[in-house]
């Protein structure tokens, strides 16, 4: 009788352990469980005066329990005096959990507009890390800057959007035309 009971206990313990294993998902798996998805996603940030500061848009946004949020064809717009000044588009993107760090991945295309909405500057680079609150961006990739008087190439770039300052970090080559 005891033998039967012991055998029964062993079998049920083995069954329960197996069941738990099946039910539990690997850590990587639980990271990538999406809890919600948004299409034509928009997120707007206002400044202290209540004016538009930045707008993040994406065709699709997938939010995960643990992992970073993923974006499809994101676009980041920075405003000054209610006018869009910098527009940055990318193939895909990611947002950190605190919503402040954004990675614009793959080829990214930047355009800077003058107050009367003329395109004054274009930047083509890849894989940009961006801090939304300080409006600071950086990349270690090759960079191409095109403006009215010529073209500049570099490897690595830092952009300080409020100060309108672009630092090119190495291998700078410029080609300009005198008008």
């Amino acid at each position: 009788m005891w033998i039967l009971l012991t055998a029964f206990a062993l079998v049920t313990t083995w069954l329960v352990q197996n069941l738990e294993k099946d039910l539990s998902t690997s850590p990587q798996m639980s990271d990538h469980i999406s809890d919600y998805t948004l299409h034509h996603f928009q997120s707007v940030q206002m400044n202290e005066q209540g004016y538009l500061k930045s707008r993040l848009m994406a065709e699709k946004m997938v939010h995960y329990l643990q992992a970073k949020t993923e974006l499809t064809t994101p676009a980041m717009v920075f405003y000054q005096q209610q006018q869009p000044v910098w527009v940055i588009q990318a193939e895909r993107g990611e947002i950190s959990n605190d919503d402040n760090e954004i990675w614009l991945l793959g080829q990214t295309h930047w355009q800077r507009y003058t107050p009367n909405q003329l395109k004054e500057l274009e930047i083509i680079t890849r894989d940009v890390r961006l801090q939304r609150d300080t409006q600071y961006a950086e990349t270690a990739s090759a960079t191409q800057i095109i403006n009215a008087y010529g073209e500049t190439h570099s490897v690595g770039m830092r952009v300080f959007i409020p100060q309108e300052k672009i630092e090119l970090l190495s291998q700078v080559r410029g080609n300009y035309v005198l008008h």
């Binding site: 300052k165 700078v172 080609n175």
Partner: peptide, 21 residues
């Protein structure tokens, strides 16, 4: 002729209208 510039680093400042190599 176009002007060609090579340098280690550069800073472009749109507000001041300067490019420093």
């Amino acid at each position: 002729q176009p002007i060609q510039i090579e340098a280690n680093q550069a800073i472009i400042n749109n507000v001041e209208g300067t490019a420093t190599y």
